[in-house]
Structures are given as structure tokens and as C-alpha cells.
Simulated assay, not measured.
Amino acid sequence: MTETAPPPTEDLTDDDATADELRRGLIGLTPTLLLRLTMLMVTEALTDPVAYEVPLSGELAAELLAQCAESAAAAANAELRPADPGLSPSAQQWLHSAVLPDSPLAAVDALVTRPSHPQYDRSVEFGRKSLLVLRIRDADGRDLGRLYQAFSPEKALQRRKVWALWSGEQFVRLTEEPLVIDRGLRLIVLGDAVTSTVVMQSPTTYQSMFGALPELRKSAEKTYRASIGKLDIVDGDKLAAACQTDLNMMRKLVSIQAKLDRPGYADAVTMPALVTFLKAHPKIDVPVQDADGPHPRLVFSSDAQHRWAILKLLDDDFLRSELTDITYEANSKTQLS
């Protein structure tokens, strides 16, 4: 049987070539008999990370390697797509993103790939932002990939519970503290600590550990400059700072951008149009300074109840029913016309 030759390299797009390279890297994590696994626990991952090497039995290391191979194979067999703020991947898709040098993941990955680490002992305290890392190397010690998983000490290090195991005749007390490891390994870093790429099953997987993806942050900043940044806002610098650090605000800006891409939407959310709308709907809690003067300004309030108001205004969350003439705040909307 004649094998079909792969398409010429020159016919591949940049995205295709990147996906093919990543797929080769993922497949390289699957021959478990040729690989070595080290498990590390990382404390204070986003602030002052410290990595501890966890001693493993040969049996447990082999089982974890098999689980890593299964996750890598699932990613290799999926459609690999560049991360995009507007893309919600299907079950058959995984996303990839370059690890930027100044990102939290880059800092942790550089720590994880050091030649040696202090050994874990039971006196180590883990906070809420802790990570479990499975580091895979070849027989020569070359780093091939790292699989990351978030864990909390309450769930992973079950110190507050009494554990019992069935012996065949009765339950017996487990005298040592168990470590609970989730089999769902959904974030894989390929390459070395200088040039690496993260492959993930969904953006949420990344964001739960490291905050906003670079693509989301960049998109949010661009949308802010093109929309809210053009408005006159009291304490606008505080709103800008919040939008640069709050993950949910960045997601809200993605929603705003989707509407700005529609014909005519940008013209409807100019400063004069917004002031006219707010004067006609005084129950909407976006104060306007000098509303009837020559230079009206929206007012940003940073308290929890009001900090979202201007974003909601730009996202068209305030709607009036034509049936009842009642004004609603609606985050979820389906356009009918």
C-alpha cells in the first residue's frame, strides 16, 4: 500500500506549521518507557514562587507518566488552534499560545526547569495559588514538556479528613496524609524555559492558574483605547487600571468589541449619544458631571456596586421593553433584528 505524502511545507500556513510542530512535541511525550518524570509542587505561583521536588515511588511515577501520555495524545489528536479571545473551543479543539517572557507562566516555568529543587516535606505550607507540575525529560535529561495543574491544600493535601481504606474484610484507618491528584491534565508547556508554547484544552484552564492569556489582555487593551479611552471620564485612569488587571473586565471588553464590529454600533456609543441616553434614563446608575454644560463627563466609581456601570453601558446591557416600557439590565442578550 502506497503512503500518501504529506503536503509540501511551502503550502502550509504559519498556523498549520505551528500546529504540526506542536503535534510533534506532544507525540514526543507519549513513549513512556523512554521518559523520566519529576513531580514538583509550587507555592505562591503568582507572587513569590518556590518549587519543591516531590519524591515518588517508581510505581506512582509510571502511572503519572501514563496519564501525561494520555493527555498529550488527546491534544495531539485534536485540532490545534491559536488562542483567540473570541474563540470557545469545542471538545475536538485545543488552543495554543506562545509563553511571553514577562508572563507569570514564564516565571514559574523557568523555576520548574532548574537543574535541582529543594525536596518537599510535610512542614511546607501551601497557599491558594499553588501548582502541581509534572516535568518530563528524556533519558539524557533534556526537557520535553511540563504539565500543570492547580491545586488547593484543602483538596489536594487532605489533612483535615480521616481517611479509611477497605482491606478486604474491614475499613482500616489510613495513617498518612494522602495527596489527591486530578487525572485531568489540561495544560501542557512544550519547549525550554526561553522559547516555549502552552497548549491547553480551554482558556479557563490557563486563566485559573496564571490570569489572563496574552491574547485576551492585548485584545482588551485595544478595545479600551478604541472605545472607553475616547470618552471623557472622571477617574478614567482608575477604570483603565481596573480593565488591565481584572480578568472579567477584560472578558467584558471582548463582548464590547464584538458589538463594535457591527455596522453603526460605534456611532451609537459616542460621548454625546451616551449623555443623551443617560439623561433620558436617570435610573441607570452612571453619573454625568456637568450633564447640561459644554464638557460633560461620565463618572467612574470604583466601589463594587458601581465599578461595572460604564462597561455595561458600552456593552448595551440596559434595555427597555417595547411591551411594558420597563428598563432592564441584561447581561445575556440574543439579537433578533
Rank of each mutant, 00 (worst) to 15 (best):
L298A: 00
A139R: 04
L40D: 04
L319M: 10
A164N: 11
L33Y: 07
T223C: 15
A73D: 12
D237W: 08
T18V: 12
I284W: 02
L260Y: 10
A107M: 01
G184F: 11
L34T: 05
S167P: 09
R135F: 00
F171S: 05
L260A: 10
R160S: 08
E215R: 02
Y328K: 03
F126I: 07
D11R: 00
N77Q: 14
F318P: 02
V288D: 05
L134R: 11
S196H: 01
P31M: 11
R307K: 15
L64I: 04
L187V: 13
E322G: 14
R122S: 14
L95S: 09
S301N: 11
S332R: 00
V108G: 03
T47A: 11
S152W: 07
A212E: 00
L111G: 01
L144S: 04
K218M: 01
F151W: 06
D292G: 05
A91T: 10
F300H: 15
I136F: 04
K279A: 05
A107Q: 12
K161C: 07
T18Y: 02
A309C: 03
M209I: 09
R146L: 07
M1P: 12
L12R: 15
E329W: 06
P104L: 00
A150F: 01
V189E: 04
L134T: 04
L131A: 12
T245V: 14
S167E: 12
L95H: 06
V189W: 00
Y265L: 07
K129D: 14
H117D: 00
L34S: 09
E53Y: 01
R320H: 03
P49E: 13
D16K: 00
R251I: 03
L190T: 08
A220S: 07
D303N: 15
M249Q: 15
R186C: 12
A17T: 01
V124H: 06
F300Q: 06
V189I: 05
R217V: 06
G145H: 11
P82Q: 07
S219V: 06
D267F: 00
K218A: 14
L260C: 12
S219R: 14
D15N: 08
V269K: 14
T276K: 15
A107N: 03
K129F: 03
D102E: 15
G191L: 05
R173Y: 10
T32H: 01
D316I: 04
I326L: 09
M39F: 04
P263T: 12
V108A: 01
E3K: 13
Q305R: 14
G141K: 02
I326V: 13
P153F: 10
E10Y: 07
H306S: 10
V54T: 01
Y52E: 08
Q207V: 00
R114P: 01
T327M: 14
A242R: 13
L336K: 10
P8L: 05
V189F: 00
M39Q: 12
T245F: 08
A273F: 02
P104D: 01
T327F: 08
A45S: 15
A273C: 01
R186H: 15
A74Q: 05
E21L: 08
V162F: 04
T13H: 07
Q67S: 08
S97G: 08
P6R: 06
K238T: 07
I181H: 02
T195Y: 09
F300R: 08
L56W: 03
